[in-house]
Design a protein around this nucleic acid. Structure first.
Lengths: 110, 110
DNA sequence: GAATATACCTAATTTACTTATACATAAAAA
DNA sequence: TTTTTATGTATAAGTAAATTAGGTATATTC
């Protein structure tokens, strides 16, 4: 699941779903959470997630603030108020895609 | 579903699943079948499918033969015998990915 | 003191899809 | 009858978005 990338286009939706579920998270935390939830099989690398977070922030759908924890600086991200429906729409679109994909891949569909 | 592409990386698996289900198909037919099965929402363009078919053939997992039908030449594709387990593995890997994705996107997972 | 975990980040490369275009025949519509 | 739509294959150029590979820094564990 590392070399062959199905992730393309899905990373931002994955991030938004995590933020929606937990409220406030930082990049490294999101990476760990995704790994935990997928039995280590989907690994969002930092090189993939940070640019994506920056892009989402630039687009105005999330915002960030820094905090110092145990001598290390964390950059927390959160959904912008009022953007929930946009987030839902993006997540639902991807869910819908996965349902179509399942149909296409199902060998018993006749 | 046209502009935002989640398709990346999934096209070859979609093709293989169609060939597995029907035995013999030509490119244009696969495009139509995918469109039909997804309520017009996933549209494999020809520019996406033909290079993918060529790549699969080059890799030895499918082969092709031409036939003239109604004055037009069709190029049929078929799975190479003995490659079924490889095909299944690829399809199952993608199904597994979609399951993980569903978990990651599910807002009610706590 | 070395390795691992935590925590952020970016440049260069590569992959592979999209946009655009090309060619060609048959059928349907205007 | 001429244009459009459907059928059918194909490639070149452009672009988006990931991966590979690297960099910086602190805290903890072995």
């Amino acid at each position: 699941m590392k070399t062959k990338s199905y992730l393309s286009g899905t990373i931002s939706s994955i991030i938004l779903a995590q933020l929606k579920a937990k409220g406030t998270m930082y990049g490294y935390e999101i990476c760990q959470k995704v790994k935990d939830l997928t039995e280590q099989e989907i690994q969002l690398t930092e090189a993939a997630i940070y640019p994506s977070l920056h892009k989402l922030e630039k687009s105005g759908i999330i915002f960030s603030f820094k905090e110092k924890v145990n001598g290390r600086t964390r950059k927390y991200y959160q959904l912008v108020e009022g953007k929930e429906s946009l987030v839902d729409a993006q997540i639902n679109e991807l869910i819908r895609f996965t349902e179509h994909l399942r149909t296409l891949l199902n060998p018993s569909r006749v």
